[in-house]
């Protein structure tokens, strides 16, 4: 009950922010919401199932490219978004089938290599994909349910609705029986195998759900901000969701949002000191791993707020 109230309160606060924020932060917050959807996908794989992937940029960028190319060829935004969702799921299924034969460090390297190969392929077929420069999506095509997504208000609303749906879906997932079996994989794979669960299919399902989130996040990013390109397939876009999840708290439902929001604020605040976010990302990663491996909400949950979902 407390958990339900908390989730609804967070969504209500986000909706209120849509009316209160000044224009600059308005756009930034819409970006944070979309990246939080991506991070929720990563959280399902890493936070709950314990699969540390370094290749989620592949699913994010696949969703974005599928959606963007479809829109360039004249498909409407709604079906193109669904295409992006599917692209995220299909790439996760394909790479998962192979990568899940490995575990631990090998799994990280294999996912990293798949993402790298995908990024290079996007550059190689630059004539079709736009390569590193990418291409803008025409403003006229960026309409969803009659809303003009080039405007700040509708853009924020669509980002919030998407985030709300994915957040509640994540909460439903991790409190379901299936969600418990995901956590069992993270905690002790051998023991859950003994109890009759199939680790391979369970983890594959987690990866596909994770890929679907990444795919829809990538597609939404393209539609909402009007630009798609291979630069979203670089390793940095695999590191970012990991960073958000680690910061907010791996295996907590609200951790991805908190991490994405805090990181955006940190990079914005530090932009007066340095001209590039690289150092901020680096220091945060090291600090988290050394001092707070559970992240913010994970630490709070350990320190007494046991009901925190």
């Amino acid at each position: 009950m407390k958990a339900l109230v908390l989730h609804l309160a967070v969504l209500a606060a986000l909706a209120a922010m849509g009316f209160l924020l000044p224009p600059y932060h308005h756009g930034m917050m819409a970006r944070v919401l979309v990246m939080a959807v991506f991070a929720i996908g990563y959280n399902i794989a890493f936070g709950y199932t314990g699969l540390l992937s370094l290749g989620h940029a592949l699913h994010f960028c696949a969703g974005m490219m599928a959606c963007g190319i479809a829109m360039r060829e004249g498909v409407a935004a709604g079906p193109a978004l669904l295409l992006g969702l599917a692209a995220g799921g299909v790439t996760a299924l394909a790479t998962g089938l192979l990568a899940l034969r490995t575990a631990g460090v090998s799994f990280m390297i294999v996912t990293l290599m798949f993402a790298q190969a995908f990024h290079l392929a996007l550059l190689y077929y630059g004539g079709f994909t736009g390569g590193d420069e990418g291409f803008p999506l025409p403003g006229a095509a960026r309409r969803l349910f009659g809303l003009d997504l080039t405007q700040a208000g509708p853009r924020y609303a669509v980002a919030l609705v998407l985030f709300g749906l994915v957040l509640l879906a994540q909460w439903g997932l991790v409190s379901s029986r299936f969600g418990r079996s995901l956590i069992a994989m993270r905690e002790n794979e051998e023991r859950s195998r003994m109890l009759g669960y199939n680790p391979f299919t369970t983890k594959l399902a987690a990866l596909v759900i994770s890929g679907l989130c990444a795919g829809i996040a990538g597609a939404a990013y393209g539609v909402l901000f009007g630009y798609v390109g291979a630069s979203f397939g670089t390793t940095q876009y695999s590191i970012l969701p990991m960073l958000y999840v680690l910061l907010g708290g791996a295996g907590t439902t609200l951790g991805p949002l908190l991490g994405a929001g805090l990181m955006a604020w940190l990079i914005d605040a530090a932009s007066g000191l340095t001209d590039s976010p690289l150092a901020v990302i680096g220091v945060t990663l090291i600090g988290l791993v050394v001092f707070a491996p559970r992240g913010i909400l994970g630490t709070l949950r350990q320190r007494g707020l046991k009901w925190l979902p």
Partner: peptide
């Protein structure tokens, strides 16, 4: 720890690049 080390060295590589 293998996984923490990878995350930490990713952070280090960003720091060194920025430096």
């Amino acid at each position: 720890d293998p996984e923490s080390t990878i995350v930490a060295t990713i952070g280090l590589s960003y720091l060194l690049q920025q430096g």
